[in-house]
Design a protein around this nucleic acid. Structure first.
Length: 700
DNA sequence: ATAATAACGAGA
DNA sequence: CTCGTTATTATC
């Protein structure tokens, strides 16, 4: 049968090879560890022009059509077999830049993952209609100069709020001038140098303004900036500040909740170099910003910065890799400091940008800790108005009388029970690996079994608290709830607002005298600051079975306390936690750096990230054993332990988890060995998958 | 998924 | 030994 002439081009037998660089190296969208490498394809003549590096295409792989990205065009293939044709170029839009491709490869390697998985995180799904839209530059962008005139070096000292380049240099006790190394950081950014900085924001600091300062110094140097924050509310706040400073057309907010069309529209605008500054959440960490000069992450301790999809990369770590691949500066900032950020400083990779003690003292509120003296309150975080201790009551009353709002931080509900020392309420820990103790086989017919470690599985027959020596254990429990009504009764006539914890999260409240009850992370800002804050979630936080508890508690406390006015104008913070605890001391002294150093030293002692590199290996018992057997002998293995059934699991299949750890210097070796073990399994078509997470933020 | 290839077994 | 069938393996 003869086909119509117009169809003949699709008859592959007649396809001719492109004249130059006829081989395409393709990253196929196949998430199998043993196929995680580029494959070569022949480029037909009619696709020669469209088949540019970075485009999406379709190729035949093992008999079926799969998506892929064109990594590069080369003259010849190293593959000694017949090459298949590139079937189709999906669109000529080069969505995968070389910089992002290299970054994705580095992220896959760092996390023992697969490039295809990382590419799915990095490049949003195509939206054909959006792609076809003729890009119309926004009005502001059309009117504003594309590149602001580059100011002279002497003018690159910290800009004031809303001060653009060219204004008079501000005094040194404002903005970044309050940090001894602040002006130097801005100079480095303005000079296009790849500075690495860890920044502790002062109490009351307008962090969004400072990030906008950094972004505008970067933009003035003709480079791009990528600013990452934990949640949508922060994106909005930071975007608005940046837009006011740089012009709406130069800044773009990129978040996952935009919807596919708008998300792709904005992402394309970034890719096409139409915006210089991108503000976003975790999903924007791979945004293809052109000529990257600055990468910044705010509040890197927030769990939202950890990606829940394979290979589970963390924003801070991705940015560190990206700072290398792109030659950009990295700024890690927050009111608190994580152990990971502390390691960046201690290893010399980053310089710290912190204020002098006197500056901190002048800006901080007065912090009081309420501990054992009010036993009832400590035990029951569900605040009883009648028992509100005098110091807390007085702090609230004074702030309201001064016409300022009061912030009340309450715990989120939903924590699971675990074991704590009955005497001092420290988390009960394994003597071998410092993992939290739990009771195995709950629901096992009422028999009492000995506690065992949730990490390494060792049974603890004779618990003795490392802190106080007590041998008694009890279950930790957390109540949550009626705080709002109780407070309303204690302060009749005062408005009580809720933010988070079931209520909608408020971005800001008016500066009126009212009570604002918020869960951690949902604290609204108040113009002029809060007069006082009550931190009621201490007990709940400090007894969670997680090595990061102290750091996490302190991070949340600093986040709330930073919204309170300085002590000199009456700012008070009352925290319900034992005054002797190191974390509480760090809050009282407003010493995030000291606490991070202690925290990091503690992790080195118990062998936990970031002091070591660790991986969680999860799957069926046989599968986990299979992966463990493929690791080098010097890898330390904890466990495996049996995992609790998750909802939806087959109750007959027993899942296990092992933790493996190596010194930091061996991190690459460990990741490579885990990836190789996975490759052997996928090549063998092993039926049950093994989940590998490197430096997991949370371990069950 | 699929195609190529190795392994296998029945009948000469 | 060949031929036809089935398991295995690589996947461009």
């Amino acid at each position: 049968m003869t086909r119509p002439v117009t169809r003949r081009r699709s008859s592959r037998g007649e396809w001719r090879l492109a004249a130059t660089l006829p081989v395409a190296r393709v990253a196929v969208d196949v998430a199998l560890a043993h196929l995680d490498r580029p494959f070569d394809y022949r480029v037909p003549e009619h696709l020669d022009a469209a088949a540019a590096p970075g485009v999406r295409l379709r190729v035949r792989f093992a008999g079926r059509l799969v998506d892929g990205f064109l990594l590069e065009r080369v003259a010849e293939s190293g593959h000694d077999g017949a090459l298949a044709w590139v079937e189709k170029v999906v669109s000529p839009e080069p969505v995968l830049t070389g910089e992002v491709a290299a970054l994705c490869r580095a992220v896959a390697d760092r996390y023992a993952g697969v490039l295809a998985d990382v590419l799915r995180l990095a490049v949003p799904p195509r939206h054909a209609r959006v792609e076809a839209e003729v890009p119309v530059p926004p009005l502001e962008a059309a009117m504003a100069p594309a590149v602001p005139p580059k100011p002279a070096a002497t003018e690159l000292v910290p800009p004031l709020e809303a001060a653009g380049p060219g204004r008079d240099a501000p005094p040194f006790d404002e903005g970044w001038g309050r940090y001894p190394r602040g002006p130097a950081l801005l100079e480095a950014l303005a000079g296009g140098r790849a500075a690495h900085a860890v920044w502790q924001a002062l109490p009351g600091e307008e962090w969004a303004q400072r990030l906008a300062d950094a972004a505008s110094a970067t933009a003035a140097a003709g480079r791009g900036a990528l600013l990452l924050v934990p949640d949508q509310r922060d994106v909005t706040a930071l975007h608005d500040v940046c837009a006011a400073r740089l012009g709406a057309g130069a800044v773009l907010a990129l978040t996952a909740e935009l919807g596919p069309a708008e998300r792709y529209r904005r992402w394309l605008a970034v890719r096409r170099g139409q915006v210089r500054v991108v503000v976003g959440t975790r999903s924007a960490v791979f945004a293809p910003v052109e000529r990257l000069g600055l990468l910044a992450v705010w509040d890197d301790g927030d769990d939202l910065h950890a990606e829940p999809r394979a290979p589970y990369p963390h924003v801070r770590d991705v940015l560190m890799l990206r700072a290398h691949t792109a030659g950009a500066a990295l700024l890690v900032g927050g009111y608190a400091r994580t152990a990971e950020a502390q390691l960046l400083v201690e290893s010399g990779w980053a310089r710290e940008v912190v204020a002098e003690r006197a500056t901190v003292r002048a800006a901080a509120p007065r912090v009081t800790a309420l501990g054992e003296s009010d036993e009832q309150l400590v035990r029951d975080p569900d605040l009883r108005a009648a028992r509100l201790p005098g110091v807390a009551f007085e702090a609230v009353r004074a702030a309201l009388a001064a016409g300022r709002p009061v912030l009340v931080q309450v715990p989120r509900s939903g924590y699971l029970p675990w074991l704590v020392c009955a005497a001092c309420r420290e988390t009960a820990r394994c003597r071998h690996c410092a993992g939290p103790l739990g009771l195995p086989g709950r629901g096992g017919g009422g028999e009492v079994s000995a506690p065992s470690c949730r990490w390494c599985g060792r049974v603890e027959p004779a618990f003795r608290c490392s802190g106080c020596g007590s041998r008694r254990l009890r279950a930790g429990v957390v109540g949550s709830g009626r705080t709002t009504e109780e407070l309303g009764r204690a302060f009749p006539g005062v408005t009580v607002r809720a933010s988070g914890g079931g209520a909608p999260v408020l971005a800001a409240v008016a500066g009126r005298p009212e009570l604002v009850v918020a869960t951690p992370g949902a604290e609204p800002t108040a113009p002029g600051g809060y007069g006082a804050a009550l931190l009621l979630d201490g007990w709940a936080l400090l007894t969670r079975p997680d090595l990061r508890v102290a750091e996490e508690a302190l991070r949340r406390w600093f986040g709330a306390a930073a919204l309170v006015v300085p002590a000199a104008v009456g700012g008070r913070v009352v925290v319900v936690a034992e005054a002797g605890l190191p974390g509480v001391q760090a809050l009282v002294r407003w010493d995030p750096v000291g606490h991070a150093a202690t925290e990091l030293a503690g992790r080195a002692e118990v062998g936990f990230p970031p002091a070591v590199r660790m991986a969680a290996v999860e799957g069926t018992a046989a599968a986990v054993a299979d992966v463990l057997s493929a690791l080098p002998v010097d890898v330390e293995v904890l466990g495996p332990v049996e995992l609790d059934d998750r909802p939806g699991d087959d109750p007959d299949v027993v899942r296990e988890r092992a933790l493996v750890r190596v010194p930091r210097a061996q991190g690459r070796v460990l990741a490579a060995a885990l990836a190789a073990a996975q490759a052997v399994r996928t090549a063998r078509k092993a039926p049950d998958p093994v989940r590998v997470r490197l430096d997991p933020v949370e371990i069950g």
